[in-house]
């Protein structure tokens, strides 16, 4: 009996070790390739160079030419698209969450919440399709009527669609956070004769602020790591621009274009993708850890 017991425990433990090993492996594999990349290309050039044209480095005599792997335009593009996405997702998600948790009748909430969460379950490739087939032509036509020329693959298109994709995510976290604020606080405010909006703005939101900040951070980390929408709608060219009407590229798009369909792994070109991937990993990791710490602190305050 004791033997049997030990065997099961050992199995469980080894499964756990395997899971842990996998998580370590993810980091290690990306990290080692990144290190090999940085042994050829200087870290400074990568993070501060403003010219990104990795394709030219395939020829051996040109490998690691300075300025070829300047990732600033790529990161700027990522930042721009994410910013646009958050400009859509933050107000939409936050106001929806407030409406659902403060104003909506229970019956409305009961069916509105799952319906909105459908948006979160739609695969990102479908959003990409929507961005290409519907959003891009629509925005372009709209741009023409007000005298703006919007590129068919623009940061605006990708950002808007991505924003709508993140909205239910921001909404559901914010709603959890808002409903975690003790009811007695809002009752105290309402009993003095405050309106509901005053209660939300002056009592609930200040109390829920840390949680809402972390909801937004998690939204940002989603946006930074999102791939399909930007691959399909944002473009490939690494333009150093903050004009949302132009085509920009993002880290995920570059990883994709550098690696898809390539069988060679020993060039700086493919390793550049790993370097981008590693930067992305670190970025999202920091965002998530900060968000989790804030949420944890916040929970402790009201538990």
């Amino acid at each position: 009996m004791a033997k049997y017991e030990k065997l099961i425990r050992a199995t469980l433990l080894s499964c756990t070790m395997l899971s842990v090993m996998i998580t370590v492996m993810v980091v290690a594999s990306v990290f080692s390739e990144t290190m090999r990349f940085f042994s050829n290309v200087s870290v400074f050039n990568f993070f501060f160079g403003t010219e990104w044209s990795p394709q030219t480095a395939i020829r051996p005599d040109q490998a690691g030419g300075s300025g070829t792997f300047g990732a600033v335009p790529v990161f700027l593009g990522t930042f721009l698209v994410t910013l646009i996405a958050m400009a859509v997702a933050a107000p939409l998600g936050l106001f929806s969450a407030i409406y659902l948790s403060v104003y909506a009748s229970p019956r409305f909430r009961l069916w509105a919440k799952p319906v909105l969460e459908i948006l979160a379950g739609v695969p990102s490739v479908v959003y990409g399709y929507f961005a290409v087939i519907t959003m891009a032509p629509m925005l372009r036509e709209f741009g023409e009527t007000i005298g703006l020329s919007i590129a068919s693959e623009s940061a605006l298109t990708a950002g808007t669609v991505m924003g709508i994709m993140i909205t239910p995510y921001v909404m559901s976290i914010s709603e959890d956070v808002i409903s975690a604020v003790p009811k007695s606080l809002s009752m105290g405010s309402l009993a003095i004769g405050a309106t509901e909006s005053e209660t939300v703005k002056k009592v609930i939101l200040p109390a829920a602020l840390p949680g809402i900040v972390s909801a937004l951070l998690l939204g940002v980390s989603r946006g930074v790591g999102e791939t399909m929408v930007v691959v399909m709608a944002a473009g490939m060219a690494a333009n150093l621009t903050i004009n949302p009407l132009e085509s920009v590229t993002t880290a995920t798009v570059q990883i994709m274009t550098l690696l898809v369909g390539d069988h060679e792994f020993d060039s700086d070109k493919t390793r550049a993708a790993f370097a981008l991937g590693f930067s992305l990993f670190i970025m999202t990791l920091i965002l998530n850890i900060v968000a989790l710490i804030i949420v944890k602190k916040y929970r402790e305050r009201y538990d």
Partner: peptide, 19 residues
Amino acid sequence: TILLRQKVGMVFQKPNPFP
């Protein structure tokens, strides 16, 4: 109701000061 509650105040069972 806003003016009403201004005139009819309420104190709750559990102290609930705002943060």
